[in-house]
Design a protein around this nucleic acid. Structure first.
Length: 256
DNA sequence: ATGGTGGATGGTCCA
């Protein structure tokens, strides 16, 4: 089973890239973030035409998440069970086969100390509660998406410059680590020990060309799923296309 | 160098 996560930065701006990705990789499951469209206007056809089911949770202009799957999607839930303030559409969960999937778009947080940063920390607390209340560490569970956090200095370009700034600040890293401690394995890190491997590069200042990136898109799994993960990769070539998303897809292969 | 890029939008906001 091949699972992918990709912040596409607007589904309508990325239709051709998504089709190219689906045709080249044929993932069983694709979790998308930043779809940026209301559900009634979501372009379902590119998925339906390729044999995917598609479940969506979107809003106008901002945020929005979706799960496409070649296998039946069950138990779809949108948002937190108890929605926190300013309930933007950043979480959709479902069961596919016997695996629970949670697709996340964690808030960016703008700058350390800002109002949006505090919202990011609140959101991470709500996410931890949501996981504790709905799952057990021995469940087959995958959480994936744009976490907007680089867990370690290995995950950022020029750590001496970026350590402590947004996406790499101690407080948000601690919040994410406490979620990991509940019972997750970072599947990419399980298979790749080296730094300099990123999933997001700023559009500005030739960041991709200089590999000035962050590893902020993740696929985490509980042990019972992680032990079946045989490979994880970042599909960098999608970032090289004309008018790309600023994120590259991350893929995990499972012998499930 | 106080910018630079990109998406949605139709003013700015967000990343």
């Amino acid at each position: 089973m091949l699972l992918a996560t990709w912040n596409i930065n607007s589904i309508n701006a990325r239709l051709s890239h998504i089709q190219e990705f689906l045709d080249n990789y044929e993932p069983d499951i694709l979790c998308m973030q930043e779809t940026k469209v209301v559900d009634e206007k979501f372009p379902r056809d590119i998925f339906i035409d390729r044999g995917y089911e598609i479940e969506i949770y979107g809003e106008k202009s901002y945020n929005g998440v979706a799960i496409a799957s070649k296998h039946a999607i069950a138990d779809v839930a949108r948002g937190f069970r108890i929605e926190i303030a300013k309930g933007s559409r950043r979480l959709i969960s479902a069961t596919i086969g016997d695996v629970n999937i949670v697709n996340l778009y964690i808030p960016n947080g703008q700058a350390v100390g800002s109002e949006k940063y505090h919202y990011k920390l609140e959101w991470l607390c709500a996410l931890k509660l949501h996981i504790e209340e709905n799952y057990k560490p021995h469940d087959k569970l995958v959480i994936c998406g744009d976490f907007n956090i680089a867990p370690d200095d290995l995950d950022i370009y020029k750590p001496e410059e970026w350590n402590g700034s947004i996406m790499a600040s101690p407080e948000e890293r601690d919040h994410l680590e406490s979620i990991k401690q509940w019972g997750f394995v970072d599947l990419f890190r399980q298979h790749h020990k080296e730094g300099g491997l990123f999933t997001w590069w700023d559009y500005q200042a030739g960041a991709f060309r200089r590999n000035a990136g962050f590893r902020i898109d993740h696929i985490w799994a509980t042990e019972s799923v992680a032990e079946h993960c045989s490979a994880v990769m970042i599909a960098n070539e999608l970032r090289k296309l004309d008018k790309p998303s600023d994120h590259a897809p991350v893929l995990a292969e499972f012998d499930l």
